[in-house]
Write a protein that binds this DNA or RNA. Structure first.
Lengths: 231, 231
DNA sequence: CGCGGCTTTGATGTTCATCAAGTAAAGTGG
DNA sequence: CCACTTTACTTGATGAACATCAAAGCCGCG
């Protein structure tokens, strides 16, 4: 699969509903001409900390992670973006360079729109400006909320959180394949890899979940939610 | 001091530079008519979790904290806003109700502008829309950055962080009075009150700072920065 | 004066990271 | 396709970091 297979038309794009619903045909055409879509294989870097921000990016398909590399070389995952999310947070307005790195954790298609075009649309189409900010605000808000949720909980609560996140918000199913390694889970919720494994095993023994490698099934979601609530 | 003493004119307001620099006289007049300024005494609640969001709020004077009350009744401080910061984060676009509570940690003056007016200005004045989002994006971005900075560090690094925050970003001096209690520091950087005190005492013994009650003086900022960097 | 809240210090216990060591899985080159 | 290396996963043991508990001094305030 290469990028030429994925090129689509903004006018018919199913993501048009997103924040672009109030654009005219003209305006959509403008975006359509200037956008590019790129396919990334699992593990590919989409952009790196420090790169210049040239485009507004949003995720058509797949799953990506936003992360930062600490001095200690340990990675720290800030958030996971799912289809329809715009990626890159608010830096597109407040910075000229990316503050975080982004890579694909599943095969992904990212749509790039020249940032200048977006900014011009904001200037010229006020309704769009509001739609747009509503969307990106809610993404950033939820990152903040999530960070707080995670670091006010202890290990069992954090693992419960991430299992519920994948189940409810990403795969919409109680059975799914973990797209990330145990190590990456650890980086996402601030704990050691060993303890991720330990807690997952505990949950298995407690009959909250079933695990087989990457395959996870939540078998007692009520109790898992309770574990999350109690922290 | 009551609110009537503090009413000023947007046109001459020193904060005009903020994000309102590209408004016409007409537009400023519009804001000026509809804005209200309120004085809050240290400790006063400015708004509570769940309240409807009616205004865009920004801090003219003083210091406020944004916080959330956990199930356990323990408070958790998300951020501290200083003059010129807009307060309330992005919820003004992505929510109809406040997600966090806000209270004054020093005597403060908050300027309220009807949210509808701001939204209308965004619709009608594209340059303003961009200025505005640049500003509020950078505030939200820095909240995210701060949360990560804090929870990738251990106790000594966190205390160093908050001392440097007050010194560099808020008071612009190496000598200042802590505006918040030890308990609030604990709530801000996720640690126990006792350990806040313990680490502060250690810093004193190590000759990094001098403390007398709320009065703090940083006497070896280089080493304090090193403590922060090392985590 | 006495009560409650803030501060401080020491002692104790829990939570968690780290270390060590071994197994399984997944690439890699001949 | 098989030996070889590397990476991911797993479990137990140990110790460090940190919260919690307890007790006492301090200060402002009714």
């Amino acid at each position: 699969m290469d990028s030429s297979n994925t090129i689509s038309n903004c006018k018919t794009c199913i993501y048009k509903s997103w924040a672009f619903k109030n654009l005219s045909e003209e305006e959509l055409k403008l975006i359509n001409c200037k956008k590019t879509e790129k396919f990334y294989r699992k593990g590919d870097i989409i952009c790196s900390e420090g790169d210049e921000i040239k485009s507004f990016m949003y995720l058509q398909n797949g799953l990506v992670k936003l992360f930062k590399t600490e001095i200690s070389k340990r990675e720290h995952i800030i958030s996971i973006a799912k289809p329809k999310d715009f990626i890159g947070l608010l830096s597109i307005f407040s910075n000229t360079n990316h503050v975080y790195s982004i890579s694909a954790i599943e095969d992904s298609v990212v749509c790039f729109v020249d940032l200048k075009i977006i900014k011009n649309l904001i200037k010229s189409n006020g309704i769009f400006a509001l739609d747009f900010f509503e969307r990106i605000s809610s993404v950033s808000d939820s990152v903040i909320k999530t960070r707080i949720d995670i670091n006010t909980r202890q290990l069992r609560g954090r693992i419960a959180y991430i299992l519920l996140l994948f189940s409810k918000h990403i795969y919409d199913s109680e059975k799914f394949n973990l797209p990330i390694s145990r190590k990456e889970i650890a980086e996402l919720i601030d704990m050691s890899t060993e303890n991720v494994i330990r807690v997952l095993s505990e949950f298995r023994k407690d009959k909250l979940i079933q695990i087989e490698g990457k395959s996870i099934e939540i078998i007692d979601i009520k109790r898992l939610e309770k574990v999350y609530d109690l922290g």
